[in-house]
Design a protein around this nucleic acid. Structure first.
Length: 128
DNA sequence: ATTCTGACA
DNA sequence: TGTCAGTA
């Protein structure tokens, strides 16, 4: 993960600032949070902490809700998004896997002396 | 002062 | 969702 991405995913904002940044009430933010739509962290004293990415997500959820979706429908949007991501990751793994298989096969073939018989013997025979 | 959980005239 | 109570 790049440093930029790390910073954006660093949870450092308490409820107050998040309310100001999103124009939402603490009640609403906790509502999204309690439904698992935001990956907030907690301090040792049980206070919620949000990252910049969380702010984006909260704003996104806010929009979906304003478009007339209910909380469950919004959940499905991200669940489907998550499944698509996993699918892509599996395809990537398969590509890597196949690549390694080819690598192994190539090595084995080389160790075995290549795809074709040694014409070394023919060469020697010609001189003998 | 700020935030959290639970509850509902 | 608002809001109030009782905490931490």
């Amino acid at each position: 993960m790049s440093e930029k991405e790390l910073r954006r995913s660093l949870a450092v904002l308490p409820m107050g600032p998040v309310m100001k940044l999103t124009s939402l009430t603490a009640r609403q933010i906790r509502y999204y949070d309690d439904h698992g739509l935001v990956n907030s962290k907690r301090t040792d004293s049980n206070r919620r902490l949000y990252s910049l990415n969380d702010i984006d997500r909260i704003l996104e959820v806010k929009d979906y809700l304003n478009e007339g979706m209910n909380i469950e429908q919004v959940k499905r949007v991200y669940e489907k998004q998550q499944r698509r991501l996993e699918k892509k990751q599996n395809l990537y793994k398969k590509t890597i896997s196949d690549g390694r298989v080819r690598e192994y096969l190539r090595d084995d073939i080389l160790k075995a002396g290549g795809l074709y018989p040694d014409d070394d013997s023919q060469f020697k025979q010609g001189h003998l």
